[in-house]
Every structure is written in C-alpha cells, then in structure tokens.
C-alpha cells in the first residue's frame, strides 16, 4: 500500500473515531450483557445457543449499519463540503483516494468487530464458565462477518461516488436485505419460466450472496463449516468487493467535483 493511501485510510479511521462511531460499542455491550443475564435466568440448556446466536447476529447487524452509515458519506460528503479540493490538488490520484477510504472504513469495522467479538466471548464465558473446542467455530462466523463487511463497505463507497448519502443508504440497505435472501431468490428463479426467470436469475446472481456468509445458526448448534465454503466465500468476497471498488473508482475518476 503506498503511503498516500495509508495516510488517507488512517485519516478516515480518525474521523470515524472522533465522530464517536465507536460509542455504539457501549450500546452493544449493554445489549449483550443484558441479554446474557436475562437468558441465564430463563433456561440453562439453551442459554449458550441463544448467546451465540444473538451475539453474532448483533455483531453482524451493528457492523452493517456502521459500514453503511459511514460509507455512504465518505465520498459524497467530501464533495459536498469541498474538503476534497485541497486533497486532490496534491499528488493524490483519485483512485488512491477511493482505495484509502475503503481501507479506512474496513479498518474502522475491523477494530469495531474485534471489540464486539470480545464482548461475545465474555458473555459466553459468563453463561457457560468455560470454553470448549467447538467455540473456535465462532471465529469462522466472525471471519465471514468481516468478509461481508468488506463487500458492504465497497458497495457503500460505490453508491457514495455517484449519489447523495440518502439515496446511497437506501441502495445499500436494499442490497443488504436482498443479498441476505439471495439463496431464496435463486431458488425462486429456478422455479419460474421465460423472461421472469431471466430477470430473477440475473438479480439473484448480481446481488451479493450474503446468505452464504451466514453460518451463525449452524455454528450455534456446533456444526462444523466446510473448508470449501470458507475458501469459496473468501474468493467471492474479495472478488465482489474488488468489482464494486473498481466501479467506484471508474465513476469517481471522471466525475466533475461540484
């Protein structure tokens, strides 16, 4: 990574921290500890299941919300406020700006996820007083969640490079929701005929396939994750994020700044 990209990335991270984005961690911690205590009171048999399920789902949702809310403004806000003028009149290429923003956002999410994961493990320890080998599966789920964040960061940046924050948020959230049901959409497509089939299949393969990244339920039941899925998801996430990021660069490269 060249030095300009890393400077832009760390400045993006600094902005997120100063915007008190990490305050959401407090909300997360409260939610999780509250839930853990509550669950502990209801049932001893399923408490671990619930903590893992709830904890990881919360990690994923909190992250997605942060990724979208920061990501949508990363480019358009800088154009709007004209803070970009004095950046791009330096020896900074436009693609470096986009890539730097991406890494800054991804870094923010990584740090955020680290602390939330810590919270999940603490809650787990609180209810079961010990860690077993199967708990290592949680790392796989967390890895998938981070891959998912990379895709969302890239998509949010892509939308931010050509539309307003509000529209970008709508686009990004819609894609997240549709992507979470990508598997169902593919199944639906297979059942239809004619033009509907073409459209449904096209959409199903174009939207990010987030359903493949969601292994939370099976992990909570201590079912192992196939190595092939890990490999496949890794490739898929990198490729998808790269495509979205390239799109963002392409659009931004030729855009007039207001």
């Amino acid at each position: 990574m060249n030095s300009r990209i890393s400077h832009i990335a760390s400045n993006t991270f600094r902005e997120a921290v100063r915007d008190r984005v990490l305050y959401n961690l407090i909300a997360f911690a409260l939610l999780l500890s509250g839930a853990a205590i509550l669950v502990g009171k209801i049932s001893i048999a399923i408490e671990k299941l619930v903590v893992i399920n709830l904890g990881l789902t919360a990690v994923s949702l909190f992250g997605v919300v942060i990724a979208i809310f920061i990501g949508i403004g990363l480019v358009s806000k800088e154009i709007e406020k004209r803070t970009l003028y004095t950046v791009l009149s330096r020896p900074v290429r436009r693609w470096e700006f986009i890539v730097g923003k991406f890494f800054g956002l991804a870094g923010t999410l990584a740090v955020n996820t680290f602390f939330m994961a810590l919270g999940v493990f603490l809650a787990l320890f609180y209810v079961s007083h010990t860690f077993v080998r199967a708990d290592a599966l949680i790392f796989v789920a967390l890895y998938f969640i981070i891959l998912e964040f990379l895709i969302i960061c890239a998509l949010a940046l892509l939308f931010s490079s050509f539309s307003s924050p509000l529209l970008s948020a709508v686009f990004a959230f819609s894609l997240f929701v549709v992507g979470s049901f990508a598997e169902d959409l593919r199944n639906f497509a297979a059942m239809t005929h004619g033009i509907t089939r073409w459209l449904a299949t096209g959409t199903a393969y174009l939207v990010p396939n987030f359903s493949a990244f969601n292994v939370i339920t099976s992990i909570a039941h201590e079912q192992p994750v196939a190595g092939q899925l890990i490999f496949h998801n890794t490739l898929y996430a990198f490729f998808y994020a790269l495509m979205a990021l390239s799109g963002a660069v392409l659009i931004f490269e030729y855009r007039d700044l207001k």
Partner: peptide
C-alpha cells in the same frame, strides 16, 4: 501537483482535525 499549491474559494477543511493535524496530513499527502 507536488509543485503547486491551491487555495480554493471559501475553503473548508476536515473539522474534526486541529489545524496542526490538518497541515501535517496535507504535508504527508504532498
């Protein structure tokens, strides 16, 4: 770009940075 400086009309900067941090950042970018 390394040889030119630009003052935009009614400039606006990252308002979460101190003036010192801003100049330091811009120096890095240059």
């Amino acid at each position: 770009k390394a040889q030119i400086g630009f003052l935009p009309e009614q400039p606006y900067f990252y308002d979460y940075l101190t003036a010192h941090e801003l100049l330091n950042y811009y120096g890095q970018l240059s």
